[in-house]
Amino acid sequence: MSELLKIDHISYSYHSLEGETPALFDVSFNVMDGEFLGIVGPSGCGKSTLLSLIAGLLSPSCGSIYINGKDIKSSGKNIGYMLQKDHLLDWRNTLKNVTLGLEIQHKLTDNSYVQINDLLNTYGLITFKNSYPSELSGGMRQRVALIRTLLLEPDILLLDEPFSALDYQTRLEVADDIWGIIRKEKKTAILITHDISEAISMADRVIVLSSRPGTVKKTFDINLSIENRTPFAARSAPEFKDYFNMIWKELNHNEQKE
């Protein structure tokens, strides 16, 4: 695996008349090609800010972000970003929601419809092609949002607490779904969550951020001794509890210092 993304000593502060809010401080880490990276941290520690920086929606106050060794602005690489909620547009049906990104980037061709049909078929949405978001379940909506992102053929997928709006049971199902899709499409992904179990069950590596201003506290490589790993199966791996305790301690330690 080669290095795909390099976060190099970045800091970021929000400015308002009430003052400056340092959100991230001196964050550095790398992401390998094809890796599934989990990032956990207390709420408000700058996780969403970090993804906005990687997606190029914000520019770091200091430091740089590289993809394949090139600065992110000039790399020409596509970055897919899934927000906390699916944000399907309720006046568009499934098909029109899925094509939104392609429309915006003027990449919608007859060929894309073949690909869209394939994806909708594979992920159990084909019968809901003409349905409106209000007719879809939470899990289906999340999958539509993911397909909308995948169609832009991102080199890196950013997921910002994508399951936090779902109830617990749906959450486990959708985590399996989304994880399966990402693995099958061989995408590099960064998953943000404040749910430790979710991070361990899905990621190859978990980074723990400190509370605000966020900085990298510790990194855990997740090695689970189970076959046919899925997020759900991972939860019953013997090492799962140990990882949970280690990460929990790291997060908690961090809170006490505050």
């Binding site: 970003y81 927000l83 906390q84 944000h87 547009l89 915006i104 980037q105 992102t149």
Partner: peptide, 27 residues
């Protein structure tokens, strides 16, 4: 209009025009 809907358009590579015609007006 919800801030995150505007962010969505930006994450899909859209500009202010896209925000206007695909989110602000239709919603």
């Amino acid at each position: 209009v919800e801030e995150d809907r505007i962010k969505l358009i930006h994450t899909l590579g859209g500009n202010k025009r896209d925000v206007l015609f695909r989110v602000i007006i239709p919603s």
